[in-house]
């Protein structure tokens, strides 16, 4: 059960899971808010049900998506906590770069 995994166990899987166009598209679709079934996620015919299922399991393993049984079908939704964690990590690095570049700019422009 992926939900019980410690956050540090899933963070690397998280970045790997997002590094795929199809999965990113599924994440975008789930981000619209309403839980979706595999049928709905494969609608449009671009991806097969099997492929969608496989990608959803990768996303579930990374703690990005979770499925809940509703009648005969599982409906999938986004787990935003993990996304926020990924965002926070990269924001921290970004902020350090912004600060460093600001110091570079000041140093160079003051010396011209």
């Amino acid at each position: 059960m992926t939900r019980s995994k410690a956050p540090e166990k899933t963070s690397a899987a998280l970045f790997a899971a997002l590094g795929d166009e199809t999965r990113l598209r599924i994440v975008l679709r789930l981000a619209q808010g309403q839980p979706a079934s595999i049928t709905e996620l494969s609608a449009g015919g671009e991806i097969t049900r099997q492929a969608v299922t496989k990608h959803l399991h990768v996303l579930e393993g990374a703690g990005l998506a979770r499925g809940a049984r509703l009648g005969r079908e599982r409906r999938w939704s986004l787990d935003r906590k993990q996304l926020e964690q990924a965002r926070a990590f990269l924001e921290g690095i970004s902020e350090r770069w912004d600060n460093a570049l600001a110091r570079l700019k000041t140093m160079v422009e003051e010396s011209v």
Partner: peptide, 9 residues
């Protein structure tokens, strides 16, 4: 300390 927008997401 984290408050900036992250380009990637």
């Amino acid at each position: 300390g984290w408050k900036y927008q992250m380009a990637a997401l």
